[in-house]
Amino acid sequence: MEVRTIKVFTTVDNINLHTQVVDMSMTYGQQFGPTYLDGADVTKIKPHNSHEGKTFYVLPNDDTLRVEAFEYYHTTDPSFLGRYMSALNHTKKWKYPQVNGLTSIKWADNNCYLATALLTLQQIELKFNPPALQDAYYRARAGEAANFCALILAYCNKTVGELGDVRETMSYLFQHANLDSCKRVLNVVCKTCGQQQTTLKGVEAVMYMGTLSYEQFKKGVQIPCTCGKQATKYLVQQESPFVMMSAPPAQYELKHGTFTCASEYTGNYQCGHYKHITSKETLYCIDGALLTKSSEYKGPITDVFYKENSYTTTIK
């Protein structure tokens, strides 16, 4: 009895394709271990004539594949690729409408935090270190965002349907971005203890939790000093293409032309909904596939993004 075979390709990165001759009487799992086709788990399936010449994702289970996976995804987590594939199996079914010149995501599976993050990423200057993220990001900007969303979920250790947080998501993504040249110098002034300067680099240099107003941050924000008295913390120097200011959701007025974009969060910790506000020729609110415009805006804002380049204080 002759062994019926077909020729397929296996890959971990969709760049390096490895030619395989597979036995049609055995499952993919018996031949390769966990195997995925377009995100779908085909591990328990036997090869079919229609699979001839198709590319299958496999887990990096030998040295060659491990090197290829690390170079593309910059992670050695053995569960990463499987999590990416199972997320992709959902995100490829989502709709990605162009809204006001940006790629958004039609609401499904509690994905409003991903839509808000995706919209924000198209408006701030950011370059990702893992080629996987950078490639998928370019495709997302062009309207094909399924891979990018699935990668975000995998890097953030999230599953489809789980509630997510924009600030946490951005923080994970910033860790995989090139923020080497970003720098922030802060000064804390206390009447009792004097003053202390701190220099922050990388992710810490672009994120701040405690106030939404970048102007206020430049002037000074009140913080408790270690001595128990009130101290003032203010920005001395900022070198970065953008800054992200966050605070627990509270009524906040966004003035046209003073910011790049913002995240609105309605609801409580267990259950809520994100919308995205962007400042173009007027203010726009993007909620999944829905767009509304207004000249002014007041609502429960939790993150505001500002364009920056270089700032030095005039406070002496």
Rank of each mutant, 00 (worst) to 15 (best):
V3E: 14
V3C: 14
V3Q: 12
T5Q: 09
T5A: 14
K7A: 13
T10K: 12
D13N: 15
N14G: 15
I15D: 12
Q20P: 07
V21W: 14
V21F: 14
V22A: 13
M24E: 08
S25T: 14
T27C: 10
T27K: 07
Y28C: 05
Y28Q: 07
Y28T: 06
G29T: 05
G29N: 12
Q31C: 11
Q31N: 13
P34T: 13
T35W: 08
Y36V: 02
L37K: 11
D38Y: 09
A40S: 13
A40Y: 13
A40N: 15
A40P: 05
V42M: 10
V42L: 13
V42Y: 13
T43H: 11
P47G: 07
P47V: 07
H48S: 13
H48G: 11
N49V: 11
S50D: 13
H51M: 07
H51A: 07
G53D: 10
G53Q: 11
K54S: 12
T55H: 11
Y57W: 12
V58Q: 06
V58R: 07
L59I: 14
P60W: 11
N61I: 12
N61S: 13
N61M: 14
D62L: 06
L65H: 06
V67Y: 13
E68N: 09
A69W: 05
A69Q: 10
F70H: 09
E71D: 11
Y72W: 06
Y72A: 13
H74I: 07
T75W: 03
D77E: 09
D77Q: 03
P78V: 09
L81V: 13
L81A: 04
G82A: 15
R83H: 06
Y84M: 03
Y84A: 05
Y84G: 04
M85T: 09
S86E: 11
H90A: 12
T91M: 06
K92P: 04
K92S: 11
K93H: 14
K95H: 15
P97R: 06
N100T: 09
N100Q: 14
N100R: 13
L102E: 05
T103Q: 05
K106T: 12
K106G: 09
W107M: 05
A108K: 08
D109I: 03
N110Q: 01
N111G: 05
N111M: 08
C112I: 00
Y113R: 07
L114M: 09
L114Q: 09
L114R: 05
A115C: 11
L121N: 02
Q123P: 02
E125H: 06
L126D: 00
K127L: 09
F128P: 05
P130Y: 01
A132N: 07
L133M: 03
Q134F: 06
Q134G: 04
D135V: 08
Y138V: 14
R139F: 09
A140L: 13
R141L: 11
G143V: 02
E144Q: 11
A146H: 07
N147G: 09
C149V: 12
A150G: 05
L151N: 01
L153T: 02
Y155M: 00
C156V: 08
N157S: 06
N157R: 05
T159L: 12
T159H: 15
T159D: 04
V160D: 01
G161I: 01
G161Y: 01
D165E: 15
D165A: 13
V166G: 02
R167Y: 07
E168C: 10
E168L: 09
M170R: 01
S171L: 11
Y172W: 09
L173R: 01
F174D: 01
F174S: 02
H176I: 03
A177N: 07
A177R: 03
A177Q: 04
D180N: 15
K183H: 10
R184Y: 04
L186H: 01
L186V: 14
N187S: 12
N187T: 09
V188N: 06
V188I: 13
V188P: 00
C190H: 00
K191W: 04
K191V: 14
T192V: 10
T192D: 14
C193I: 02
C193K: 07
G194C: 07
G194W: 03
Q195P: 09
Q195S: 15
Q196S: 13
Q197E: 07
K201A: 09
G202E: 01
G202F: 03
V203L: 10
V203C: 11
V203I: 08
E204M: 08
E204F: 06
A205N: 07
G210E: 02
G210M: 03
G210C: 08
T211G: 06
T211Q: 03
L212I: 06
S213G: 01
Y214L: 07
Q216Y: 01
Q216V: 06
Q216K: 10
F217H: 01
K218N: 02
K218I: 03
G220R: 02
V221F: 06
V221R: 03
V221L: 13
V221M: 08
Q222G: 10
Q222E: 12
I223T: 12
I223M: 09
I223V: 15
P224W: 09
C225V: 03
C225T: 00
K229M: 11
K229R: 12
Q230W: 12
A231V: 02
T232F: 05
K233W: 07
Q237E: 09
Q237M: 11
Q237P: 03
S240V: 02
F242P: 00
V243K: 05
M244S: 08
M244D: 01
S246C: 03
P248G: 06
P248W: 14
P249T: 08
P249S: 05
P249F: 06
A250L: 07
Q251V: 10
Q251A: 07
E253L: 08
E253I: 04
E253K: 13
E253C: 01
L254T: 00
K255S: 06
K255L: 11
H256L: 15
T258H: 10
F259H: 06
F259D: 04
T260Y: 07
C261T: 00
C261Q: 03
S263G: 00
S263I: 15
S263E: 01
T266K: 00
T266N: 06
G267Y: 12
G267K: 14
N268G: 14
N268C: 15
N268W: 15
Y269V: 15
Q270P: 09
Q270A: 10
Q270S: 15
C271Q: 14
C271A: 08
H273Y: 01
H273D: 03
I277Q: 10
S279H: 02
K280F: 11
K280G: 13
T282K: 09
L283H: 03
Y284P: 01
Y284D: 08
Y284T: 12
C285N: 04
I286D: 00
I286V: 07
A289N: 13
L290C: 12
L291P: 05
K293N: 12
K293M: 14
S294P: 08
S295C: 06
E296T: 14
E296I: 08
Y297L: 00
G299S: 03
P300V: 14
I301L: 04
I301V: 10
I301F: 01
I301H: 07
T302E: 01
D303T: 04
F305L: 01
Y306E: 09
N309K: 13
S310E: 08
S310R: 13
T312F: 11
T314V: 10
I315W: 14
I315Q: 15
K316F: 15
